[in-house]
Design a protein around this nucleic acid. Sequence first.
DNA 1: CATGAATGAGTTTTCATTCAT
DNA 2: AATGAATGAAAACTCATTCAT
Lengths: 209, 209, 209, 209
Amino acid sequence: MAQVLKEEVRSRIIASAKKELLKKGYKDASMREIAKGADLTVGNLYRYFDSKEELVNTIIGTTLEKIDRFVKEKTNEGISLNKSDFSLDVSGKIIAYMLKDIGDELVEIYFESPSAMQILMKDEAVSKRMRKWLSKLITYFVSKMYGDSLLNAKVLDVLSDSFALSIISGIQACFLYKDLNKKELKLCIRAYLGTFAFLLDQKIELGEE
Amino acid sequence: MAQVLKEEVRSRIIASAKKELLKKGYKDASMREIAKGADLTVGNLYRYFDSKEELVNTIIGTTLEKIDRFVKEKTNEGISLNKSDFSLDVSGKIIAYMLKDIGDELVEIYFESPSAMQILMKDEAVSKRMRKWLSKLITYFVSKMYGDSLLNAKVLDVLSDSFALSIISGIQACFLYKDLNKKELKLCIRAYLGTFAFLLDQKIELGEE
Amino acid sequence: MAQVLKEEVRSRIIASAKKELLKKGYKDASMREIAKGADLTVGNLYRYFDSKEELVNTIIGTTLEKIDRFVKEKTNEGISLNKSDFSLDVSGKIIAYMLKDIGDELVEIYFESPSAMQILMKDEAVSKRMRKWLSKLITYFVSKMYGDSLLNAKVLDVLSDSFALSIISGIQACFLYKDLNKKELKLCIRAYLGTFAFLLDQKIELGEE
Amino acid sequence: MAQVLKEEVRSRIIASAKKELLKKGYKDASMREIAKGADLTVGNLYRYFDSKEELVNTIIGTTLEKIDRFVKEKTNEGISLNKSDFSLDVSGKIIAYMLKDIGDELVEIYFESPSAMQILMKDEAVSKRMRKWLSKLITYFVSKMYGDSLLNAKVLDVLSDSFALSIISGIQACFLYKDLNKKELKLCIRAYLGTFAFLLDQKIELGEE
DNA sequence: CATGAATGAGTTTTCATTCAT
DNA sequence: AATGAATGAAAACTCATTCAT
C-alpha cells in the first residue's frame, strides 16, 4: 500500500469531518465515523488532531476569527465574540447601513470557506452568543416599534430575544443553501437583513384583544 | 396489592419523558432515566412503548394533531402536516387574519400541554415540515415584497424558505419561555406574527449593488 | 442460561476486583479485566458500580473508616486521615503503648477483611497520608536519637521521612503475607512496631567520617 | 550534513528517557514523549532499543551492575543479584561494618548517575531481588534479636522479610530526595543503616499477650 | 404484567509497536 | 540510518434494547 502524504490525509480528515459535522452537529458527530469517512484508523486520526475540539476548531476557527474581527471593526470594538458584555451607541439609522455591511462581509467570508461557515452556523454555542448581542441591540428598537402596546418589560424581552433568534435563523438558512453563487447569496442576505432594517423603523399596530 | 392500571402507568411514563426531554433533548434523554422518573423498570417501559422514537412521537403526537387539525380547518384542507403537496388560494389580506388566528390557537394548544409543545418546538423533523408549508405559503408574498429586484426564482425560493425558518424560530423562542402567562404569551405571539403579517404587505426597496 | 441473583454477581465482581487490585494496584487494574474475571460484560459491571472509584471504595471503604476511627480515638482526635494538619502531644513513652495498641487493632481489622486491608496498604494515596503523619510524629524522636551529629535540619527531615516510610513499608509487608493466623500476625506486628518503639528511646552513635 | 554518531543518539535517548521515567514512572512514561525529548522519531528510537523494557533496563543496568559488583566483592561472592540462592558466613559484628561500607558505596554510585539510581529505586523488580537477599541476610539476626519469643519459623520469615523491605524502603526514600549534597546524603544513609546495624545487636523484649 | 440482569455496540482518547518509504 | 504514517488493542464509561424469570 502506498505511503500517503501527510497533507493529503489531513485534508481527507477535514473533508470527512465537515461532512459529519454538517450532518450531525458537534455533539453527535463521532470521531470513529470521521475516521471511517477518511479511510483511517481512529488512532491515526489522533496523530493529526489532538482532540475532537481541536479538529472542529481547525475547521471553524479561521472563519470565526474573520467574522469577529470584522464585527469588532464595524462596531468600534463594541461587540466581540469573546466578551459577554458589550456596549453600542446606535445613533439613528446607522444600524441599517451597518447591517448591510455586515451582511456583505459575511457573504465574502462564506465564499472563502463555505462549509466552515455552515458548520459554524449550526454551532449552538456560537448561535447563542450571536443571539445575545443581537437581542440587546434590538431591544431599543422593539420598544419603539410597538409603542405603548407592550408595556410589560418581560414581554419586551421575550420579543426582542425571539426576533434576535429569528434574524439569526434566517441568515443561517441562507448560508445553508449550497447552490447559490456569490451574487445571489449577497442578494438574499441583503434582502433579508434589509427587511429587518426596514422593520426597525416602523410602527406596528397591534389589534385589540 | 392493587393492580396498577395500564393507563396510569402510561401517563407516568409520559410525564417523566417530558421532563427528561425538556431537560436534555432527544439524543441525550435516556430511557433508563425516564423509567426511573416514572418509577418503573426499563423492561416494563418497553412494554408500553416499543422504542424511544415511539415514546417521543406519542408525546408530541396529540399536540401535533391538534395543530394540524386547526390549520387544515383554517385553510380549507389546503394545508396539512401529512402531505407534502398542498395548495392554497390566498386572496388578499386574508392571510393576516389567518396568522392572527393561528397564533391565538397555538397559544391555546400550548396551554393544554405546554411541555409537549416545547418538545415539539425543539423537534427538527417537525420544524422541517412546518417550514415547508410556511415557505410555500409566503413565496407569493415575498415575490411581491421585493418586486422586480429578485427576478431569479432560486433566490426567491431561498428567501421564502429563510423567512419561513425565521418565523418559526421566533415562535419557538416565544414558546420556550417558561414564565409567561397566557395573556402575555398571546401578546408576544400576536406581536410577532402581526409584524410579519404587516411585512407581507410592504414594498421593500433594496439598495443598488 | 440461568438468571443469576444480584448479590451473587456483586460478590463475584468484588472478588474479581480484589484479585485485580492486589495484582496490579488501582491505576493498572482495568474494569475490563475485572468484568472478565467476574464473567460479565463491562456494561453489566457498570450496573453494579457506577465507576472504578466507587468499586474500589466499596472494597476499601469500611476498612479505611475503621482504621481512621480507631486512630482518631487513640490520639484524642489529634490524627485523622481526612485532615492534613494535625497536632499531637506526645509525652514521654506513651507513644510505645500507643503503637502497640494501634498494631493490635490493625490486626483485628485485618482479619475482618484481609484483602481490603491488603489493597488499602498498596494504595499510594493512603500510604502518603500515613507517611506524612508518621514523619511529623517521629521528627522529635529522631532528633533526640542522633543528638548533635545531625545538626542539619534538612538531613533531619529526610531521615524522619525515610523512617516513616520504612515503618509503613514493614507493616504493609506483614499484612501482605497471606498464610499467617491471627496470633502469628499479631506477634509480627507487635515485634515490628515494638522494635521501632524501642529504637525511639535510644541514642545512636554515628561513626566519624 | 554531518553524520550523527550512533552513540550520541543513544545517550540522547537515555537522557530523555531518564527524565520521563523520573517524572512519570515506568507505566506512564511514553515512548513517543521519550523520542520527542531526544529529538528523534519513534521509529528511529526502536532502532536503538527493541522495546520500552530494554530501554529501561539499559538505564538501570549499569548502576545495577555496579551495585552488584560491589556487593559481590564485599561478601566474597556470597551475594549476587543474579542468583537466587546464596550463602553468607557472617561472623559477629562484621555486618555492621559491611552495612556502613555498602551505604557509602551506594552514595558514590548514586552520584555517578543519580537519576539511574532513582529510577532503579522505584523499580519493583529490583526491589524484590534486593529484598530477597537482605531478607536472608538478616534472618539470622532477627532470630537472635527476639530470642525465644518467636519460635515459629513462619513468623521469623515474615519478620525478616518485612524488615528487609523496611530497610530498603528507607534507603529508597533517602535516594529519592533531590536536594541533598553528597555529604548530607552520606550522613543520612549512614545514620539510617547504622541504626539498623545497631538494632541487630540488641535484644528486644516483647510484652506478654 | 412486571422485573432487572444482560448484551453489544457505542463514546473519546492513548500508546507500544510495526513498516513502507 | 532515519522518518513518520499507520495499526490494533487498550483505557473508562454509556445506552437502547432484549429476554429469562
